[in-house]
Design a protein around this nucleic acid. Structure first.
Lengths: 292, 292
DNA sequence: AATCTGTCTATTGTCGATAAAAGACAAAAG
DNA sequence: CTTTTGTCTTTTATCGACAATAGACAGATT
């Protein structure tokens, strides 16, 4: 197979959600915009909806015939893009599995293990290399540098530089900048999670990323914002991997975030710096603890 | 053709240089180490040296029969690796040619223009994307963000953060660290170029990279060091492209480097910071001037 | 005993081919 | 005259194949 039709399957599933709540579908371009796919894919979706008897489609008439049921959806395994599959597979290997620093990475072996072509693996490794966890020996193998203590220290050093600067820049955003509204929304979710911390503490990971990305964006610097990808991926898999004391850690981080948010809103540089440093310090400690 | 034998050709040329100065060649592993290639390539080189009558090779006996002449070398166009060719070609397009920001980049078109396969172009673009000049729309084209004023400002902002910190770290390197010797060597080249500035001002570009990379390395942070690649490539092509007032600019930068070097050697934090800021400021101005 | 060479295998870098997806354009519908 | 649809072309994502290169191992040489 030359290309997986995951875009189609994923958009189809999302279209079913839309379909659950309306009696008819909008025009092809509009539906394309809603699902973020091209008209070609929209038409493929409409064709299939008709085939499985969900839709009566004739030109502009797109009438929903019945509510979709679970069996209409494509299984989730089939909707992940290849690069997501590779990333998960690879991260499991290097974080969970006993992967020693210095180990060689074999493209062919990885490809066979995941069951995909070598080109996709190569492209993944090239993209992944910017995270500083692997390194290429030209004309030869990749070397795993590993998720080591040094790695964590270097990562957090840059993170702290960037975030302190971004937080300071945040204070200078004009009052009508949408970031302030987003900050309000983020704060509200913090309170919601804290109110039901026992059940919802695992929601923190996603919220953490959303908050810090917002702060980094205030730098208006593409290198700072792009670097946040590195932090995000490390923390993302770190949270998945290390769940000891997750409840307490996350509760504490949530409180720190709230202090940080309130400092940002005060626009007082020294309060911001203090709250930011405080939080970054405990984030660093958490990360380091998980390594040893 | 599946793979260009540029490694072979380049190593062959370098081997001819070695051959100009000895009467016989060392063992295969040793030669491989000298040329940084595998034994397979060494043997291919030896085979060809024998074919063209430069060497009498029988097992351990590798006797030079005559001095190599210009015609023995492979032409330089054939020794560049594919990625170097793509990079040059691409940079010429986006820096020299009238490439508007927002323009679409077409993989197939680029590949055909350069006369190579699409896979190589794709891999190049993925690697290149970390420089922040292009961006991918998934399942669709790349977008040229362009070498704009914003780009230069964002680049220099991060550069200044990183370099100030690296310079400060430099002062704490132990006296026996090899960086101090390299610093001496670099300083000597500065004096040599300044003494013959009229003829040698174009040598500055390479020296500049060597010096700043040395400073960045003192950070001992892979993200800082890796980021220097972005700076290096931008300045590299910038120097090639914009040669107005190059002599004066470079002379000034050389003087600033000397002050910077002397400050580093003093290990006095405030002197270092001052000299570093001074130089970074004029580097930024130079870069910005070339954009408008 | 250490290193070198001969030989063989494994892996990378690059290509062209092909299905999925994006997108262009004109005719049709409002 | 603006938007939608039908149709067609172009481009991307992925694959498998193959030459260049790296690398492993055993026997030969010093």
């Amino acid at each position: 197979m030359a290309k997986q039709n995951t875009v189609f399957k994923d958009a189809f599933n999302r279209c079913l959600k839309v379909l659950e709540q309306t009696a008819s579908l909008p025009s092809e371009p509009e539906l394309g915009a809603t699902l973020s796919v091209s008209r070609t894919t929209v038409r493929a979706i409409l064709t299939r909806l008709e085939e499985v008897g969900l839709l009566a489609w004739e030109k502009r008439r797109k009438i929903v015939l019945r509510k979709p049921v679970a069996a209409d959806y494509f299984p989730t395994e089939e909707t992940d893009s290849l690069s997501e599959i590779i990333e998960r597979s690879f991260m499991r290997r290097i974080l969970a599995g006993g992967a020693e620093p210095g180990m060689q990475i074999n493209e062919l072996e990885l490809a066979r293990e995941i069951g995909i072509g070598t080109t996709s693996v190569r492209e993944f490794l090239i993209r992944f290399s910017r995270f500083g966890l692997i390194e290429k020996r030209p004309n030869s193998h990749w070397v795993l540098k590993g998720f080591t203590r040094d790695f964590a220290l270097e990562l957090t050093e840059v993170r702290e530089m960037f975030e302190l600067r971004s937080a300071a820049a945040f204070a200078h955003l004009p009052g009508e900048h949408p970031a302030w509204q987003e900050l309000d929304a983020i704060e509200a979710v913090h309170h919601a999670i804290l109110a039901d911390i026992e059940n919802r503490y695992l929601d923190f990971s996603e919220l953490d990323e959303r908050f810090h990305l917002l702060v980094h964006r205030a730098s208006k610097n593409r290198f700072v914002v792009d670097f946040y990808d590195v932090i995000a991926i490390v923390f993302h898999y770190h949270y998945q991997w290390n769940k000891t004391n997750a409840r307490e850690r996350n509760a504490r981080a949530l409180e720190e975030h709230l202090a940080y948010i309130s400092a940002l809103r005060s626009r007082d540089p020294s309060r911001i710096e203090h709250a930011c440093r405080q939080h970054l310090k405990s984030a660093r400690e958490t990360l380091l603890q998980s390594i040893n």
